[in-house]
Design a protein around this nucleic acid. Structure first.
Ligand code: MN
Ligand code: MN
Ligand code: MN
Ligand code: MN
Lengths: 220, 220
DNA sequence: TTACGGTTTTAGTCTTGACTAAAAATAAAA
DNA sequence: TTTTATTTTTAGTCAAGACTAAAACCGTAA
């Protein structure tokens, strides 16, 4: 059974909103994520339910099935591999890849993805630090914590961003935060939740709590 | 004005059938090429006419406009660049690329194509020997002649294939004909039009007139 | 000049994936 | 336990792109 581009996009959205299939997802949540109207979502949920990639109980939201999870992870795998390709091979900036990958992820060719993976040397993470599922849909997740959760004097390394919008990524470029940077929390301001971060042992960075909430690190 | 995937496919078909815009094209020809029904084609021709990429006179076939030619060549450029990518970078065989390129050619991103072109080192020909239009739609065509048109004792070099079907390309692989091969016509059989060809000064190849008609060479 | 065969267009239908407006169901408040 | 607010679904519509069947047109032959 084959999914259309629209169905793949819905399923991916449901997967993300459900935190990898752990939570159930409401019609309105999906509508917001996909930027469609709830009425359109209701329709699609019925169809995805019939295809048994989600379990759909009217008025009570949806849960993704095992089959659905597998399908969503395949699409996510393709999306992230293409992002790596665009950045590593075609010198795209990390804030330029998302829309293109959103299209490329729907190209149907198992051989293409297998060869692309090989060509990219089997990358484990995409340019935003998100893990790339293997061909069986297995994801090796790293324990990650938002910068905002870290305490003063704690050290670590930036490994991913929660928000992949161009606006946010460009801001990180501007201030010199990047994936792989070593960081240390110098100060947390009680009043507004903003933070002072030492980057690579040399540069001090001030960031609002909104920024700190969208940078993910591993602690060391 | 933006074209849908379907519209791009129709326009490309019309471009090819019209020999690069020189001949007018009938509804039935398009239907055969796209593998749809004439009724569907009529409908689409009306739409393409409204978008002024073709000139459509009911019952009298269509002619592609300058704007249409430009659009078609952009799609062809993308198709052929992706074919080069698949063969040169992902080790696809030349008979495996067409279907995938047929999808990839519709990805919308000028930056992607510009960077891909650069990454591939500005290739001038695709894996089947067809020229790749530049970003302005200019094609530098080589003078090519079908093998079947060559006379006994004439020499040359295989530069392209007319038929890009997997069946034909696999056959060429099997018998050892390839783009770039040096060839010489040893014999032409009056009776059935079949030919005897010397390849790379060492291997003799017998081919039917159908095969000889689909191999293109430059004479030397 | 008319009849005919082949080509093309029109008319009507279907599916997919959107939308708006209205109805129905659920959840929260009184 | 009603009432109300919010969410969700249904009903009806639309556009794109396909299809079949029927009508219209074109060019040729009688
Ligand atoms: Mn997508
Ligand atoms: Mn990403
Ligand atoms: Mn195509
Ligand atoms: Mn080609």
């Amino acid at each position: 059974m084959v999914l259309t581009t629209a169905e793949e996009n819905y399923l991916k959205a449901i997967y993300h909103l459900s935190d990898g299939g752990t939570k159930s997802v409401s019609t309105n949540d999906v509508a917001a994520q996909i930027k469609t109207k709830a009425a359109s979502v209701s329709d699609m949920l019925r169809k995805l339910g019939e295809k048994e990639v989600i379990e759909y109980r009217k008025y009570y939201g949806v849960n993704i099935t095992e089959e659905g999870k597998k399908r969503a992870l395949q699409t996510i795998r393709k999306h992230r591999l293409w992002e790596v390709f665009l950045v590593d091979k075609l010198q795209f900036a990390w804030d330029e890849v998302h829309e293109v990958a959103e299209e490329l992820e729907h190209i149907q060719s198992p051989l293409l993805i297998q060869r692309l993976d090989e060509f990219l040397n089997y990358p484990k993470f995409d340019p935003h630090g998100d893990p790339i599922p293997d061909e069986f849909g297995d994801v090796r997740a790293r324990p990650r914590v938002a910068l905002i959760e870290m305490d003063i004097d704690q050290s670590g390394q930036i490994v991913a961003v929660k928000d992949s919008s161009a606006a946010f990524l460009k801001y990180l470029d501007k201030v010199g935060a990047y994936i792989g940077a070593r960081i240390k929390v110098l100060d947390k301001v009680e009043f507004d939740g903003s933070m002072e971060i030492l980057v690579d042992q040399k540069k001090t960075l001030f960031m609002s709590k909104d920024v700190a909430a969208n940078i993910l690190a591993i602690q060391s």
